[in-house]
Computed example of a mutant assay.
Amino acid sequence: MRVEIWSDIACPWCYVGKARFEKALAGFPHRDRVEVVHRSFELDPGRAKGDSAPVLDMLGKKYGLTPQQAQDAENNIGANAGAEGLAYRTEGRDHGNTFDMHRLLHFAREQGRQDELIGLLYRANFADEQSVFEGDERLVELAAEAGLDAAAAREVLADPAAYADDVRADEREAAELGANGVPFYVLDRAFGVSGAQPVEVFAQALGQAWDAKPRLATISGEGEVCGPEGCEVPQAGHRA
């Protein structure tokens, strides 16, 4: 079974949702047969690369919040993150363009290190003091920490076209699926789960998606087969 997760590194509920989903997956009896794929979604696609701003300022401007309301919102998310065992800085973070991070995540998927990298990007954005929006070298450091070749990661970031089409394709697909916010989880293209749901909801969705998987219907007849003991010999009148 495949689970596709549309998310953005700038999304705090994606950070919290990842932890909750992983707890549900850890308790799922068929977890070894579940493939998790992270898909791209930008919350602020119009923001230019290199244009970053304090998170509290962004929240105030985008949602019309007072400074205290913005801080209260951050404190609330921080409490939810803490309940999942996640570190979360409620003050001093910044917000910026995440397109290059998504390009790097597509590269990481090819190398089998996507989940490692997205976890490090979340940690860096929401818990570390050093910003992830300070330039390519910070992203290269995180890529190397995830087990990727630093020089190869640097080449990807230096080429604006590298994996750009993959990011855009993910975003178009999200729109086609009706996802207008993240996190958004799609289980085997049969079930959708929106938001950082409680662990129990994710566990229920995993079970429902697994139970709904089509089972192979076998038609038995006179056709010969090969097995561990060899191949059947066609009977008289049968064509070999």
Rank of each mutant, 00 (worst) to 15 (best):
L117S: 08
Y163I: 00
A179E: 14
L104P: 01
A83H: 02
E74C: 01
G178R: 12
I77A: 00
G178H: 12
V140L: 06
A212M: 07
C14L: 02
A190G: 05
R39K: 13
D8H: 04
D44C: 01
D136H: 15
Q204S: 12
Q235Y: 15
D32I: 00
R239I: 15
L120D: 12
V193K: 08
A203R: 11
F184K: 04
G221D: 14
L120C: 08
G50V: 06
I5N: 09
L117G: 06
A209S: 04
A203L: 13
G223N: 12
K62Y: 10
D57F: 05
A161P: 03
E145K: 10
N97P: 00
Y163C: 01
P214D: 08
A151Q: 12
Q68F: 04
R138Y: 14
R20A: 10
V3H: 05
P54Y: 11
F21R: 04
G195P: 05
D72T: 00
Y185R: 07
L216T: 13
A19C: 06
R33F: 00
W6D: 10
A143K: 04
G50H: 09
K18R: 13
E134G: 15
D72F: 00
G46T: 06
E176R: 14
N76Q: 14
A161R: 13
A10P: 06
C231H: 09
C14R: 04
G237T: 00
R239A: 15
S220H: 10
D32Q: 10
M58C: 14
C11Y: 06
E4L: 02
R47W: 11
P45L: 10
F191G: 03
R189F: 03
G64W: 06
H106C: 07
N76M: 10
A19R: 06
I9M: 13
Q208H: 06
N75P: 02
G227P: 06
A153T: 01
K23V: 15
A190C: 03
E42W: 01
L139R: 02
N76I: 01
V193H: 09
G147D: 08
R215K: 14
V36M: 07
R31E: 02
A174F: 05
A87Q: 13
A161W: 09
L59M: 13
S194W: 06
R109S: 05
E22L: 03
D166K: 14
P183V: 14
A175N: 05
A127W: 12
R93M: 02
L120V: 08
A108E: 02
A24G: 07
V140C: 05
H238E: 15
A205W: 11
E91L: 01
E116K: 13
P29L: 12
I77C: 00
A150K: 05
G135D: 07
G147L: 08
I9E: 11
N97R: 09
Q111K: 13
S131E: 09
L206G: 01
F28I: 03
G237M: 03
A26G: 10
G17E: 12
K62S: 07
D149N: 14
F99Q: 06
G85W: 02
R123F: 09
A179H: 13
A48F: 07
R168W: 12
